[in-house]
Design a protein around this nucleic acid. Sequence first.
DNA 1: AGCAAGCTCAACCATATGGTTGAACTTACG
DNA 2: CGTAAGTTCAACCATATGGTTGAGCTTGCT
Lengths: 117, 117
Amino acid sequence: MVELAKNLLADDLDELFHALAHAARRDMLIRLAERELTIGELSAPLAMSLAAASKHVKILEASGLVRRTVQGRRHVCRLQPAALASAAAWLKFYERHWNERLDALEDLFRTDPTEAQ
Amino acid sequence: MVELAKNLLADDLDELFHALAHAARRDMLIRLAERELTIGELSAPLAMSLAAASKHVKILEASGLVRRTVQGRRHVCRLQPAALASAAAWLKFYERHWNERLDALEDLFRTDPTEAQ
DNA sequence: AGCAAGCTCAACCATATGGTTGAACTTACG
DNA sequence: CGTAAGTTCAACCATATGGTTGAGCTTGCT
């Protein structure tokens, strides 16, 4: 997991987190967790045009979170959990680090309150 | 944890993930895991002006990831791990969901390959 | 008092983002 | 064959983002 986190290029993480930083795209991801969906199905519940939704899908694709297969005139999208795992790995790695830091601070506070500030 | 993920407003998540979607800001967070740092210290290793770095810190603050305390003319920043936990919670919640989905697909594939595609 | 340090603020700029609309292309179907 | 369905593409627009520079404000030091 640490390896995973370290091997991620900054640009990849930029794209990943940016892909997650929009409610419409997160909504798509959540629904894609249930089943594969076409562009039209993905766009339907969203308050925007199909073209706009299509752009969001393209961003998800670029980030690696979603993959598309063209079936006739329909573009079927499915989740790519591996990419998501990369973002989770980054967070988990540093989250652990931060928690250790927190624990250390708490220890310090317990033993010698004057040094905690 | 589920509660945590559900209680997050979309706007908050937008801000959180957006804050994480820039290498300079992630670098700041990583270094803030070690110790508190001033704006100047945060900006020093980055290839940008102090003013630019200051803007990044402001974005981190707005997302809740960092908190600042003014000590004289120095602005000291420290990590706010709770906010980070929110992002992690969101990812973890859906990651689990996605993994279950993956497992289900694998099962399907094992028992009846024709239905898996 | 006077000056340097540490930041913020405002103005500005280029490019990215997120949306729209209308035209075009490919595929399915009667 | 003709037409509707499902998408993309291109042009356009407003606003956001990420950077710069220069001025200005506090605070600390001598």
